[in-house]
Design a protein around this nucleic acid. Structure first.
Length: 424
RNA sequence: GGCAGGUUGCCCGAGUGGCCAAAGGGAGCGGUCUGUAAAACCGUCGGCACAGCCUACGUAGGUUCGAACCCUACACCUGCCA
């Protein structure tokens, strides 16, 4: 197979060192969704696609071979985590993230923006809490310690590993991400919670925009400085919480951004998204973004949300959920999600999901997985993760196929009808 | 044979007169998890006709208004001495 980096190098008339491009394929008739193809120096990604999360340069519990077997086209790691450990210089010296973790295909890195929120509010479900009646911008989970403090220039973190104090700014995040060397990077942004006030959200969107400008500038500088390295694409991240005007303004602002000829290669859609409004919010954003650039919906993977995201124009997704949930015994199937740890699976000598082609389902039974979880054996996490990642990757693959066949709407109705009714 | 300690709910283990159906842990059972501070967390955990009642802290008896807690006997276990 010819690698995309070679293809890019040979591409006639291509921009120097580009190696990154996006081609739109077929569109959904009555929606913003489309199929497409992202080309990166480490190969192509057919979209819509689910990107598997490997925060610390490893998809927890599984070998890269398994991730490839599951059908994953790309893996996403995290700048904050890799900055703390082992340090971006180590990853750089290793030849970049992909080389370091033995993942030859495309890689993404998140900027550390998510940690502005998760470490800032103290690691709780503040994201999903009801915003009604709350007028406090010092949002923090009960009984927790705030490990991150935001200001207009950046964020001060206290390492969750050893308490060391660190400072992230847009420039720092860009430098780290360039050292990590992923094919797609995200601009450093501030992710708010649904509990923040409207006034705070407005300021936050402005702050994220100001940071986006600084990210672009630093990205441009680093790209020139690291001329010998494969091109790394940079996606700007759209915030604006649940407010239509903020979302549209944020997206439009990022779309129009150009710093010394450098603009974003794609866009991330981020922030706290209420499940019910997810599709609508994505739609506002997609409408305000250029059609010829890819849109990545950050941190989303439940079936109904994937359909909603695709319908609203999202091209790629990433999420910790399939693997995290797997490690805790929850299994996704076309008929809903269930816990294999349940007594009903003790003597169920059937696959996790009937008809599934994944390694786990073709070799093991629910009863065996049940046993492994009960016995707290590591293999439980491994096998369950393989299944859930396969489930999620293949679901998005099948959504892509349905668009290509012009059957997205029917497929969505049919699939979710079964999935949601079978749900326990 | 003597001396000392012990016997608590499925298991381990606190509790030594009322606030004890009995702390805590484990197991069991159920659930949660959306840009990973997560191989984590939460709930439940004697029975029932459930703001109450019944059964329960080795067994049997006793003291007391009231006992897992005090006394007596018995059974079994553990350590030390012979």
């Amino acid at each position: 197979m010819t690698t995309a980096s070679e293809a890019a190098a040979l591409a006639p008339g291509g921009e120097a060192r580009s190696g990154f491009s996006f081609t739109v394929g077929r569109r959904i008739d009555d929606g913003l969704g489309r199929t497409g193809r992202i080309d990166t120096p480490h190969g192509p990604i057919d979209t819509p696609a689910f990107v598997v999360v490997g925060t610390k340069a490893t998809v927890k519990a599984v070998l890269p071979e398994s991730i490839a077997a599951v059908g994953a086209q790309a893996v996403l790691a995290n700048a904050y985590h890799l900055f703390l450990q082992p340090g971006p210089d180590v990853v750089d010296a290793a030849g970049g993230l992909g080389q370091f973790m033995n993942w030859p295909s495309p890689t993404f890195t998140d900027s550390g923006g998510f940690q502005v929120m998760s470490l800032g509010v103290g690691f709780k479900k503040v994201l999903a809490m009801d915003a009604a009646g709350v007028a406090d911008d010092e949002v923090i989970a009960e009984g927790s310690t705030r490990l991150a403090h935001v200001d207009d220039d950046g964020v001060t973190f206290v390492s969750h590993l050893n308490g060391d104090r660190h400072r992230f700014t847009p420039e720092v995040s860009m430098r780290i991400q360039h050292q990590l060397g992923a094919d797609v990077m995200f601009a450093f942004d501030e992710l708010t919670t649904l509990k923040n006030t409207r006034a705070y959200q407005e300021n936050s969107v402005d702050r994220t925009h100001a940071w986006a400008i600084r990210c672009l500038a630093e990205h441009r500088r680093l790209t020139a400085e690291r001329e010998h390295k494969p091109y790394q694409a940079l996606f700007g991240v759209v915030q604006g919480a649940q407010y239509e005007d903020l979302r549209r303004a944020a997206a439009g602002g990022l779309a129009a951004l150009e710093v010394d000829g450098q603009s974003f290669d794609g866009y991330g859609i981020g922030g706290a998204l209420e499940k019910e409004n997810l599709g609508r919010i994505c739609g506002w954003v997609s409408e305000s973004l250029p059609e010829d650039k890819p849109r990545h919906l950050l941190g989303i993977s439940e079936p109904e949300d994937l359909f909603a995201g695709v319908a609203a124009g999202a091209d790629t997704f990433d999420c910790v959920n399939p693997s995290r949930v797997a490690r805790n015994g929850a299994i996704y199937t076309a008929d809903g999600r269930y816990n294999v740890t349940t007594a009903a699976c003790r003597r169920a000598f059937t696959p996790l999901e009937e008809g599934c082609g994944c390694y786990t389902c073709t070799h093991y039974t629910r009863a065996y997985l049940h046993h492994l979880f009960k016995a707290k054996e590591m293999l439980a996490s491994t096998l369950a993760t393989i299944h859930n990642e396969w489930f999620t990757v293949r679901l998005v693959d099948s959504i892509r196929a349905s668009i290509a066949e012009g059957a997205f709407a029917d497929y969505r109705t049919e699939y979710l009808g079964r999935y949601l009714s079978g749900r326990r």
